[in-house]
Amino acid sequence: MLVVEKNSLTEEIEELVAHYGNDRASLLPILQDVQRKHSYISDYAQQEIARVLDIHPVEVYGVISFYSFLYSKPMGRNIVRLCQTITCDLQGKKAVAEAIERELGIKFGGTTKDNRITLEYANCLGMCDQGPAMLINDKVYSYLTPEKAVEILGEV
């Protein structure tokens, strides 16, 4: 990472800490904000966060790796999370998943070459009455069909 980038990241993290407070309880909101902006939380960011919150870097990493929506490795610009849980499964998740994989040419867990989309499975999204459902970043899409899903993905 370039020194300039590092400095601006440090500055950004310090601002977040000023906003949320330097208590460990601020850790998740800070991680969420850093990730929103950078799509993941880099080694350097993790260590800076640990430094300002006065905790150990491995604790930050332990937290990031625990939560499935936090990443310590670079991700695509958009994260697509298709629900894999029971009701969506009953309602045709598999066909949707296959259509998306075919269309994007990647498997679940992968990222498109142009870095536009990372595909992941998620557990129940709380949209079981309208399944199959998926999240694209923080937006939820329901009543998916293979065609509809592919169409939506074409627009992100």
Partner: peptide
């Protein structure tokens, strides 16, 4: 998060 629950939503 319980699968099949969405009343809180």
């Amino acid at each position: 998060g319980e699968p099949g629950t969405f009343k809180d939503r």
